[in-house]
Simulated assay, not measured.
Amino acid sequence: MNAAFFLSLHVLAAILTIGPVAVAASMFPRYVRTAPQEPKAPAILAVLHRICRVYTVIGLTVPAFGLATAASLGVLTDAWLLTSIGLTAVAAAVLLLAVLPQQSRALAALDGPGTAGPANYTATTADDSPSTAGAATAARLGAATGVFNLLWAVVVVLMIVRPGSTTGV
């Protein structure tokens, strides 16, 4: 298979899988903040979390096609690619170890044992008030999601600029 084919698959996979995760994860904190007052928030949060989980798994195709592209281009040892691979691994770790677990905890707090919906949003904070808990959870989620999105932005720039490449950029 040629490099153009793998590159096309890599770019399509990135757009169609990383994009939805970035958008859904970015929307999640807003609905966590409004959950106590918004009756539809728990359902919206559940859908956003599902999008993040499902597209994370499908997103494994992005590095697979990326490695196939790099191998076909003979750039597997280039510094820009190794940096991109490292940043991709860090972004994946942020998603798997921070964003998705915090989303799960926020959903569990909304639908705790014997509760039903946003009126029972009981995540705890120092003053144990639901509105403060929602704001704190949203802030943590926003920060983790921001780091995830920033890492992907840097990877995209590295993929386009490719330091030392012959593209003239």
Rank of each mutant, 00 (worst) to 15 (best):
N2Q: 13
A3V: 14
A4R: 11
F5Q: 10
L7M: 12
S8H: 11
V11N: 04
A13Y: 10
A13D: 13
A14L: 13
L16I: 04
T17A: 14
P20V: 07
P20C: 01
P20L: 05
V21E: 01
V21D: 01
V21K: 03
A22K: 06
A22G: 11
V23H: 06
A25E: 06
A25W: 06
M27K: 10
M27T: 02
V32M: 06
V32Q: 10
T34K: 10
T34M: 14
T34R: 14
E38A: 06
E38Q: 12
E38L: 13
P39C: 00
K40Y: 06
A41S: 08
A41I: 03
A41K: 00
A41R: 01
P42Y: 02
P42I: 02
P42K: 07
P42H: 05
A43L: 11
I44Y: 03
L48R: 02
L48W: 07
H49G: 15
T56R: 10
V57S: 05
T61K: 03
P63Q: 13
P63L: 12
T69S: 15
T69L: 12
A70P: 09
A71Q: 12
A71S: 12
G74T: 12
W80D: 05
W80Y: 15
A89N: 04
V90M: 13
V94N: 02
V94L: 05
L95M: 14
L95P: 01
V99E: 04
P101A: 10
Q102T: 14
Q103Y: 03
A106F: 09
L107I: 03
L107H: 04
L107F: 05
L110N: 01
L110A: 05
P113E: 12
G114I: 05
G114T: 03
T115K: 12
P118I: 07
P118D: 02
A119Q: 09
N120L: 02
Y121H: 10
A123Q: 01
T124F: 04
T124S: 08
A126V: 05
S131M: 04
T132S: 14
A133I: 01
T137H: 08
A138Y: 12
L141C: 10
L141S: 09
A144W: 15
F148M: 09
F148W: 10
F148N: 02
L151Y: 04
W152T: 01
A153P: 02
V155G: 00
V155K: 01
V156M: 12
V157Y: 02
M159I: 08
M159G: 15
G164E: 00
G164V: 00
T166I: 09
T167R: 07
